[in-house]
């Protein structure tokens, strides 16, 4: 693979709280190629959303990057000034969020919000910005763009609101779109439409998409590659067909086994024992070992590194596999 558009390398993010230091992200590593649809999947609290915000230089108050690199076009974003990051946000890297109703400003029209973003990043006239806003509304397949342009957010449905968010995100020609749980708050049928739209935009405009989600089904439907995160680290990464259909890491296997399937008897629904570790006090060694049925002594002491286990960069961070592979 040529140089990736985005590469997150050994990223560590800490939050200082009254209870102590929370280890939210602990050596997150993954790469998103140009035009790639990449999934970052994990349970809530695994650091996936914080990673998304860290890429934009928007870690919430109390948090900071402790170490690592975030390269975009080969340049380290962590060394950029606030003003430089602001020029990148919205212009080169855009982000959409869960719950589009809360993400649109309720007291401004859709049009004025898109025009504001466009005019923030370009020096074009108001009329030209308006024309471009109408074009982007059209590009996300919203009916009657002039009407949407004049509408207020509460006058649109959830699916339309998320289309508006996507239009706004793409209005300045961003190369990377970070989509943080973009369909979680939507009806299932609308979910499929929004995912279809993201896939179509990727195909048509060649934009890279970093999809942050807890939903393996969504990843299976849309993504080229996927990284599974646990306790702020990537435990398994690779092509979707490898990671989701030939999972190696016990956590990935557990997640997949826990997915309900149509026609499956209720009693056979599996779950991973225990719960997601607290970022205040992470387990030693492999963070998953207290919940892992096959954990051995080494898992308690040493942190496993990502190791190639299969074709096309299928990598996993697990002592078990390395032991088996070595044997």
């Amino acid at each position: 693979m040529s140089e990736p558009l985005l590469s997150v390398e050994e990223l560590q993010v800490r939050f200082q709280t009254y209870a102590g230091r929370v280890h939210a992200v602990n050596g997150m590593t993954f790469e998103v190629g140009r035009g790639e649809f990449f999934g970052l999947v994990g349970e809530s609290g695994c650091g996936k959303s914080v990673t998304g915000l860290a890429i934009l230089g928007m870690i919430p108050r109390g948090g900071a990057v402790a170490s690592g690199r975030i390269r975009f076009h080969g340049e380290d974003l962590l060394t950029k000034s606030d003003a430089q990051m602001r020029a990148i946000r919205g212009r080169h890297i855009a982000m959409i969020f869960q719950d589009p109703a809360a993400t649109l400003n309720p007291v401004f029209t859709i049009g004025s919000q898109i025009v504001r973003v466009i005019r923030q990043h370009t020096s074009i006239s108001p009329e030209e910005a308006r024309r471009r806003a109408l074009e982007t509304l059209d590009a996300v397949a919203l009916p009657d763009p002039p009407r949407i342009f004049r509408a207020y957010p509460h006058e649109l449905s959830g699916g339309m609101q998320q289309r508006v968010m996507i239009a706004m995100a793409l209005s300045c020609g961003a190369e990377l779109l970070i989509a943080d749980e973009p369909t979680t708050a939507l009806d299932v049928t609308i979910q499929a439409q929004i995912l279809g739209l993201l896939a179509e935009i990727r195909r048509r405009q060649g934009v890279s998409i970093l999809l942050i989600t807890h939903n393996l089904g969504v990843v299976a439907e849309t993504c080229d590659r996927v990284a599974v995160a646990y306790a702020g680290r990537v435990v398994e990464v690779g092509r979707v067909e490898d990671v989701l259909f030939r999972p190696v890491h016990p956590y990935t296997q557990g997640l997949l086994a826990a997915l309900p399937r149509a026609g499956q008897a209720k009693e056979s629904l599996l779950s991973i024992p225990g719960s997601v570790p607290d970022g205040l006090a992470l387990p030693s060694g492999c963070a998953f070992h207290p919940r892992c049925a096959s954990a051995v002594e080494l898992c308690r002491s040493g942190e496993p590194a990502l190791t190639v286990v299969g074709p096309d960069g299928h990598r996993v961070a697990c002592h078990l596999f390395r032991r088996e592979g070595a044997a």
Binding site: L56, M58, R86, A87, I88, R89, G90, R91, A94, M95, I96, F97, D99, A102, T103, L104, N105, P106, F108, R116, V117, Q120, H121, M165, M168, A169
Partner: peptide, 20 residues
């Protein structure tokens, strides 16, 4: 969240505070 979204869109801090 719409303020977070405005920051993510690179809107200047002054416009975020005094307009949005």
């Amino acid at each position: 969240r719409y303020i977070l979204a405005a920051r993510a869109a690179g809107i200047s801090e002054r416009a975020i505070l005094f307009v949005l």
